[in-house]
Amino acid sequence: MNSSKPSLKQKFTAWLENASMLDDAMEKDLAKGSDLKAQENEKAVYEAWEQRQKNRHDTAVQEEHALYERIHHWTMTGGAKTATILYRLFCIFVCLAVTAFMLMMVLDMPAYGNANSPVNNEVSARYIEKGMEETGAVNIVAGMILDYRAFDTLGESTVLFIAACAVLTLLRIDLNRHGLPTEELIAAEADDRHHEPKDDVILQRSAALLVPIILLFGIYIIFNGHLSPGGGFSGGAIIGAGMILYLNAFGFKATGKIMNFRVFTVITFCSLMFYGLAKTYSFFTGANHLHSIISPGIPGNIFSAGLILPLNIAVGMVVACTMYVFYALFRKGGM
């Protein structure tokens, strides 16, 4: 056994001897001292090389300077004039071409108010005549986008969510693998509002006055979406804008208490999931003529129009969170 394979101890001693051999060699080299002549030779070679580099650099700088002078001279006199004239001519040409093209397209459209034009087909007539009866929404647009074409709106909300995820992947600055902030993150924290006024009293007072009103107005628009113009998208955008104003006035510390990546993920996921499930149920029962627990209610009441109100709330939450996350990521790369 010992003869075929060296034991661990043998290996170790062999390694130690090897190491000591290397040490001996190094000590010998040091004791002998380096060759002075070789050193001088090396120095001369290095100096020659340095001189060559310097010459090349100087020539390059001179050439570049000459080129810059020539171009600069040309742009200041002939070039600028020519370029400006060409640019203006091109602009006029593009404007005229686009205008002519648009007018030609308008000529091809059906006459305004023509009963036979493809816009006035039976679909829009049905929406207008039976929309309120079937969906229970006074606002026909809300009935259309959240009832007849609800899956289209689910797609739109999902697009917002995916866009937020993509921006998050690209712009978020993570902690390093030990859970400590990286240099990039520290730089981003320092750079954030480096030039901007911090703790501006005027902004803070006006934000304290305006933000509650803005948030209330956004909630009103979402909750009244089936009764008056508005709905999830516009109300959510208003709420997001209010949150951004609050963030600008009071900084990330104040908003970080209620809004972080985890909250964003949970809210968006729950909203989209609820939307998909609720609408699937509604479409399933509707298509199979089953009894549905969702009733249109009395049109005009705040709790009416079946699913439109909860769906508006879901869409509004997704939109508000997405707007806020976009702003935070583009500003600092985090929240």
């Binding site: 030039h195 901007e196 006024p197 501006d200 005027i202 902004l203 006006s206 006055l209 305006l210 009103i213």
Partner: peptide, 21 residues
């Protein structure tokens, strides 16, 4: 009312940023 609060504050911030930069 809303715009008379919001617009002057926005102008104030722009002015402060301009003076700083």
């Amino acid at each position: 009312c809303f715009l008379w609060i919001a617009s002057p504050v926005a102008s104030h911030l722009i002015a402060r940023l301009e003076v700083t930069l």
